[in-house]
């Protein structure tokens, strides 16, 4: 039992959990604060990841790409690496956020007017469409071959063996910043209008608030956060392809995290990420079939059902108004 080995493993685990916490935060903006049942998280995840990767990754070797136009030019074209100590990272994250936010606009215009369950199915379709685009439009994303050698932020500062510690700090800084931003937004006058919409849409509308506009803004905000998560993810695993954004890892697990941790509550969202990812990693050590990834699929499903049945507010939840005895 090597203590250093355990710490190493834990840090690696924490990096991923922290990245997921970012996603959970974004989903909380969607569902917890705006009531948008978004099961297309994978779409924003992918857009953020690909955007960040595309503007920072040098073109793959000849044999490894077909018809791939973008990566061949973008980092050079944008002079991304001329910015001094790895400031390209900030640029990449920003670009990911903006790309995801921009994509959110037409998607939002399409879906926000819909009733919640229609919204869910539509976001599902959108995520699938995005996946298909990244898979088939090889000039854009190198298709199924994916993008390799996504650079490490500040990769030269520490040895590869210790890099995770550095990245963990990066993650926490980003997570902390986003947490503060969301908190600020929710407590602002804008956030209060959002809350009033969530509680009583008709009254808010009677007060002259443009419901659609507020919901769309919240949708964009949440999407941008998810885009940032995608970028962080891409620079962590350093290789992405359409398969990376499998619904289990890119949508379902995040829903489980939010439901377990507490929707409507930012701290809960973050906590949920660590709890669920903890369970995920923990089961890898269990004997036999418990560590099977398929079992974890089953477990995520059960977690979601259990969270809803047993503790609808999650661990830290603000009880979302579930029951309304309508006359």
């Amino acid at each position: 039992m090597d203590i250093l080995g355990i710490i190493d493993y834990t840090v690696g685990w924490a990096v991923v959990a922290g990245i997921y916490a970012v996603f959970s935060l974004g989903l909380n903006v969607h569902w917890g604060f705006t009531g948008l049942f978004n099961i297309g998280i994978a779409g924003f995840f992918a857009v953020g990841a690909y955007t960040s990767a595309l503007i920072t990754t040098p073109p793959p070797k000849e044999e490894l790409f077909e018809d791939f136009i973008f990566g061949g030019n973008l980092p050079e074209l944008l002079g991304v690496f001329n910015l001094g100590i790895d400031l390209w990272f900030l640029l990449a994250i920003l670009a990911a956020a903006i790309a995801a936010g921009i994509i959110a606009i037409p998607i939002g215009l399409l879906t926000i007017r819909l009733k919640e369950d229609y919204l869910a199915i539509t976001t599902l379709g959108v995520a699938e469409a995005i996946r298909l685009i990244f898979l088939n439009e090889k000039w854009l994303s190198n298709g199924s071959r994916g993008l390799y050698n996504i650079p490490k932020f500040l990769g030269d500062w520490v040895s590869p063996a210790n890099y995770n510690y550095l990245y963990l700090v990066v993650i926490f800084v980003v997570l902390g910043t986003l947490y503060l931003i969301v908190k600020r937004a929710i407590n602002s006058p804008w956030g209060r209008v959002l809350k009033s919409i969530r509680e009583d849409e008709m009254t808010a509308q009677a007060n002259g608030k443009n419901i659609l506009s507020f919901k769309l803004q919240a949708f964009i905000l949440g999407a941008a956060i998810m885009g940032i998560g995608g970028a962080l993810y891409a620079h962590n695993i350093r290789f992405i392809s359409p398969i990376t954004f499998d619904p289990l890892y890119a949508t379902f697990v995040i829903w489980a995290m939010l439901m377990v941790g507490g929707s409507g509550n930012n701290k809960g969202a973050i906590l949920g990420a660590f709890v669920v990812w903890g369970i995920w990693a923990g089961t890898a050590f269990l004997p036999g079939f418990f560590s099977d990834p398929s079992t974890r699929l089953f477990m995520i499903g059960v977690l979601i059902v259990a969270a809803i049945l047993l503790k609808p507010g999650g661990i830290m939840g603000e009880e979302r108004k579930i029951s309304e005895n309508k006359p």
Binding site: W255, F298, G301, V302, V305, I308, E324
Partner: peptide
């Protein structure tokens, strides 16, 4: 039925069925 008796909104029930969907696929894969 427990969710209906509790007065849960149809979105929550749909969300729960998402969990069921995932669990069912998990069983098949296991």
């Amino acid at each position: 039925r427990r969710l209906r008796d509790r007065g849960s909104s149809t979105v929550i029930i749909a969300m729960c069925s998402l969990g069921v969907a995932i669990a069912l696929r998990g069983i098949v894969q296991v």
